[in-house]
Computed example of a mutant assay.
Amino acid sequence: MKVAVLGGGAGGAAAVAELTQAGHAVSYWARSESTLAPFLELGGIAYNGVLGSGVARPQTISSDLGAVVKDCEVALVTLPTFSHASMAKALAEAGWPSDRLVVLNPGHTGGALEFAHAFETAGRTAPPVVEFSTLTYVARKLKPDEVTVTGRAGQVRAAVLGGDDSHLTTATLLFPGASPVSDVLASDLCNVNMVLHTPGAVLGVAWVEATAGDFTFYVDAMTDGVARVMERLDHERLNVAAAFGHKLPNLIEEMKLIGTVEADVADTSDYRSAIAGGVANAKIKAPDSLQHRYYREDFGHGLLPFRELAQIAGVAVPVADALYALAEAAVGIDYHTGGRTADAMGIAGLSKDALIRKVSAR
């Protein structure tokens, strides 16, 4: 299959490695020429970790979006979620056909809705969009030309907006760990990062600023108090999902499926022990500043759209509201401006039933 991988970070680099290994014809795009320069010098993307080690060599490496996506069957977007709207507009302007698949890896919460709406605001009919609930990798770019992949998701949730089962089949051919769910509200509400990151990010602000993140986020910072807040937030997520007709696993059960909580964990109500005992995340450092994506992405494009969905569902989410307000105060940012609002997702003013109809349309 001809796949354009869009995004110069660790997720995009890992996807190039995996898809190239699987025999797909891969083209690779990043906005920044300086990001691509080390890969161009090497002639590919070096990788190590759970995908093995070697150099993946895409057919094209370029910052010219039109050249990269030309003749491709799938556009795989591996950018941070705050880039989805701008990427949708760029793809629309580059002439991406409205009948060709876009896959958001990850879409997180509201990704497909925002992407499709942004594509349409560019004057084009939105293509079918498959979103994954979370990134299929635990990966870091520790060198400019190399990605280290410490984990590969065993399972992530996948749903399609504006498409059908054939588009989900294509996505699962590319990523066998993608497990289809009935609609994008289900995949939206399986976004583990908005539950996993936000309590520790808010409650650990002083430690982040005092140490520049010199502690492990999932072990040192996973205290009993943080875990209790996380569990309460998770219950709010499950209540919102239930209001939309979805019965979802709790955070620990979902992380077991992904592979970031160990498979032999029996007590899925013990959030602290289960998360701190996960091997894939054990050595990951905390944010080094309040500019880190845990603050910039997981609130404005995680908790914000979650709160918007909760409002449409008619479900109170006081812990989410409190974490959101504290993050805005601590970071000194208005997440609503430029964030994933109901307007940005194209769902402002919809009733619960109308939103369910929108995401269920085939």
Rank of each mutant, 00 (worst) to 15 (best):
R157L: 13
A158Q: 05
A159Y: 06
A159K: 09
G162M: 12
G162A: 13
G163S: 13
D164C: 03
D165N: 15
S166D: 07
S166T: 13
L168C: 11
T169D: 14
T172D: 04
L173P: 03
P176V: 09
P176K: 00
P176E: 06
A178L: 10
S179C: 14
P180S: 07
V181C: 09
V181W: 01
V181M: 01
V181S: 00
S182C: 12
D183V: 09
L185E: 05
A186T: 08
S187I: 00
S187A: 15
S187F: 02
D188E: 10
D188T: 13
D188C: 13
D188N: 15
C190I: 10
C190S: 13
C190T: 14
N191K: 03
N191Y: 01
N191F: 04
V192D: 00
V195M: 01
V195R: 02
V195D: 03
L196C: 06
L196P: 09
L196D: 07
H197E: 12
P199E: 09
G200C: 06
G200M: 08
A201F: 07
A201I: 05
V202T: 08
L203R: 05
L203A: 11
G204T: 03
V205A: 14
A206W: 07
A206Q: 06
E209V: 15
E209F: 04
E209D: 14
E209G: 11
A212F: 07
A212K: 15
G213W: 00
G213P: 05
G213Q: 08
G213H: 01
F215N: 02
F215D: 06
T216E: 14
T216W: 02
T216V: 05
T216H: 14
Y218H: 10
Y218A: 06
D220P: 09
M222T: 06
G225L: 13
G225P: 05
G225D: 15
A227F: 12
V229S: 09
V229M: 07
M230H: 13
M230D: 02
M230Y: 13
E231H: 14
H235D: 15
E236G: 03
E236R: 10
E236D: 12
E236L: 07
R237G: 03
L238M: 11
L238T: 09
L238D: 08
N239F: 12
V240N: 00
A241Y: 10
A242Q: 15
A242H: 13
A243E: 04
G245N: 12
K247A: 15
L248S: 01
L248I: 04
P249L: 06
